[in-house]
Design a protein around this nucleic acid. Structure first.
Length: 565
RNA sequence: UGUCCGAUGGUGUAACUGGCAACACGACUGACUCUGGAUCAGUAGAGUCCAGGUUCGAACCCUGGUCGGACAACCA
């Protein structure tokens, strides 16, 4: 009994969407049905903000034993493309969600939508307007000043019907006429000031081809599409809150099923931008290398960066949902991927900034195979062999001639553990006077301290990773960091814009020396480079030119300590 | 000088719907460690935008402010 109580306490409390849904369920609003949808426009790539929405919609569907549709809101042929349709489906699937046989397109409903428009005209609730876009805009008024009624507002039902039919038939050029709802030009809600319902667009649609030359506006398609699909809960972002009045009006006037729209605050992430327009700008101006550049917050970018679907789902779960504006710390996303990869990725050793160590008392030409644990978090991942020889690379940062306090790494006279190998002592240093840097570190090793041997338990402060010089596999390593150096790049100073805050160090390419076990690693494979971070084999990688992307560094309490000193 | 929405540690989300503010990330200690990782233990940090009111009792309810956001595309 006590246990049950504590279990109940541990249960996560409901978010406001779940609360609304459960209330509707209790009141038997939709005969117990829960049906959601994810409705992207195929005009760009999905990003982490969409991932939040996808997880929300599909998650809710699953939680309440309901269904979730994938519907493309493809009402604007000039901006949309099958390229985006394909990438969106790939991304949703990759995230781990399944719309089963419920793949829909707003364009599937064009005929039905047209009939709805005719109903409105017949009821005297819509009219054909001949004003230009500029005139319509000028007469709309401002949020605090009412608009002016269109001179075409009083056309007869017959004339409107005739004109609308001819619009569809292609008798009029683009922009010459629109169909407008007849609501209220003085409404305090701008969206109720006779909004445009249909426009003439002689454009080829990616699905309907040239069948139509009039296309419904989003506002005339979205709500009705939800209605047609009998969506119970239309979950969308905050900016559509003001549109809800219009959707409700349309649905009431047409006389069809009314879904319930609920708005939530979109995701914002620190050190990046999330608007499609801005992401497109980065791509077009080649500030990044395409939509799937690993620095992009796009799903395909994150995938290429090495993020897992699980980590993104965890992230979506952990950030919660509410209606207030929010900026999530990038460090939370990083936490999610570290947590996931720590448990699942195998470890290897790689040196990214090498300095040579020569072990003077290790026989020349001798090679020992060291046994290394693949993943200390998961014994089932087994072990591998790593060749050890007289000449090794270690990281240049792991050696200091004059070490500060608490420096646990190598320094003259000091000892360190070489991971999965021997204890090493630094005897002397050879410097390249021209370059002013160390060229060789001469050491001795203690043969009794090989990992696993009785003497190997000797306490040494630090452990270094290493790679045998003669066995090292070279690779291109792309070190990624946050795309922007400003926490909120959108918040630009006078005369600047978000691009002025791009982090110049967001990508550094270096040559890495890796242990030979990764020689045949395939694109998509993930590893932890011990003490450095998590890395994924990039799609650019080939057999004779390995390429790795750094997903995220390991948590590093040393550089933090160093900074604070 | 419009309409709508929102306001809880640095960040995000909770608070069993009115019962002395919790969880996660982050930060900081320390233990442990053949990854300065992981793990474990712990600390600091908000008195809930402000002012009134209702109530035995308010983060939750009411009133009035303040601040922030959204809305004026033949975009979605």
């Amino acid at each position: 009994m006590e246990k049950k109580i504590s279990e109940e306490k541990n249960e996560r409390s409901l978010n406001f969407l779940e609360e609304i849904i459960e209330k509707d369920l209790r009141n038997n609003i939709n005969e117990g049905r829960v049906h959601t949808r994810f409705p992207p426009e195929p005009n760009g790539y999905l990003h982490i903000g969409h991932a939040k929405s996808i997880c929300l919609n599909f998650g809710l569907g699953k939680k309440y034993n309901g269904k979730t549709n994938l519907r493309f809101d493809d009402t604007n042929p000039v901006k949309e493309d099958v390229e985006y349709v394909d990438s969106i489906m790939e991304d949703v699937r990759w995230l781990g969600f399944d719309w089963e046989d419920r793949l829909f397109y707003a364009s599937d409903y064009f005929e039905q939508l047209y009939k709805y428009a005719v109903i409105l005209i017949q009821k005297g609730k819509a009219y054909v307007c001949d004003m230009s876009a500029e005139e319509i805009s000028e007469t709309r008024g401002t949020p605090s000043r009412p608009g002016k009624e269109s001179p075409y507002r009083t056309r007869s039902v017959e004339e409107n019907l005739d004109l609308f039919t001819r619009m569809r038939a292609g008798e009029f050029p683009d922009g010459s006429k629109v169909l407008r709802a007849k609501i209220n030009m003085a409404s305090p809600n701008m969206h109720m000031r006779d909004p445009v319902l249909y426009r003439i667009l002689h454009a080829t649609h990616h699905r309907t081809g040239d069948k139509w030359c009039i296309y419904p506006m989003y506002d005339f398609a979205h709500g009705q599409s939800d209605s047609i699909e009998r969506i119970t809960h239309s979950i969308c972002t905050l900016e559509f809150e003001v549109h809800r009045t219009l959707y409700d009006w349309l649905i009431r006037e047409i006389g069809i099923y009314a879904p319930r729209q609920i708005e939530f605050a979109r995701l914002n992430l620190s050190y990046t931008v999330m608007s499609k327009r801005k992401l497109l700008e980065l791509v077009q101006q080649k500030k990044v290398n395409g939509w799937d550049d690993p620095r992009m917050p796009t799903i395909c970018g994150l995938r290429r960066r090495g993020y897992t679907p699980e980590s993104i789902r965890t992230f979506a779960d952990i950030i919660g949902v509410a209606k207030r504006d929010n900026v999530i710390d990038m460090s939370l996303l990083e936490f999610c991927i570290r947590e996931d990869l720590n448990k699942r990725s195998n470890r290897i050793m790689a040196i990214l900034n090498p300095v040579k160590v020569i072990i003077d008392n290790f026989p020349e030409g001798r090679v020992e195979e060291m046994e290394a644990v693949n993943n200390p978090e998961d014994e089932t991942k087994g072990k591998r062999h790593v060749p050890f020889s007289r000449e090794l690379f270690i990281e240049r940062e792991d050696f200091m001639e004059e070490p500060p306090k608490k420096f646990f790494r190598l320094f003259p006279g000091g000892e360190v553990r070489l991971r999965s190998a021997y204890i090493l002592k630094c005897e002397s240093v050879i410097k390249d006077l021209q370059k002013g840097e160390i060229s060789e570190i001469h050491c001795t090793y203690d043969p009794e301290t090989r990992s696993g041997m009785p003497q190997s338990n000797r306490k040494v402060k630090g452990t270094l990773h290493w790679v045998s010089v003669n066995h090292a596999v070279e690779a291109e390593v792309r070190l990624y960091d946050r795309l922007f150096s400003k926490e909120n790049p959108d918040d630009a100073e006078e005369g600047k814009d978000f691009k002025d805050y791009l982090n110049p160090d967001s990508l550094k390419v270096c040559k890495g020396y890796l242990e030979p076990s990764v020689k045949n690693a395939l694109p998509g494979e993930k590893f932890q480079f011990e003490r450095l971070g998590y890395f994924i084999v990039d799609k650019d990688s080939t057999n004779d030119h390995l390429v790795f992307n750094r997903t995220v560094t390991l948590k590093d309490s040393w550089t933090r300590l160093e900074k604070n000193q």
